[in-house]
Amino acid sequence: MTTMDTGERRRSSDVRPVITDLIDGATVLSIAEEAWIALVGEDEILVPIPGEPPVDIVSSWVDIVGPWTGSVVLTTGRGTAEELSRALLREAAPEVLEHEDVEDAFGEIANVVGGNVKAALPGPSGLSLPQVGNAPVVRNPVDVCRVDVVWRGEPVSISVQGALPPLPVPSPTRENEVPL
């Protein structure tokens, strides 16, 4: 791994943008749509409406570290993640999908969406390898751009969310570093 500015030590005088200053839901949706069309299938339509969230959910995400630091998180039901993986692999999909196959494919979709979200943000930024599991917690409710869609009748959410808590109100007299 190359070392990069983790963005975790910032001075209180810095103005840190929140994600909604940098990207809007329509852009995130169009990135996801392109990923679905190309990877999942040309006629795979994402309907931008929230669906009933399933009980058993799983997330895949990549972290972006740069002028804006956070994660691009895909969340859906486990069954849907499996279906997505199958669609991605098409006839290369094995008879029985192993847990690793789903992790790998679902993670790769997060990588593709995340890479394109990163490129739409001010850079340069680093991109982490994808992870799969329980989504990182939202640290700052203002620093989130979330799009809810329905794919093949199942809800999928794409959340671009900051990794840093809100900044304290800056004090003009102090230049101390704020531990985050």
Partner: peptide, 26 residues
């Protein structure tokens, strides 16, 4: 790759890549 910042593509070409396909692709 899904790395699709303009500067990243320039870096890859400078390092010796001939072409660059951005994920997602058909």
């Amino acid at each position: 790759t899904s790395e699709s910042e303009h500067t990243q593509i320039v870096r890859a070409l400078a390092a010796g890549a001939h072409e660059y396909v951005i994920k997602p692709f058909t």
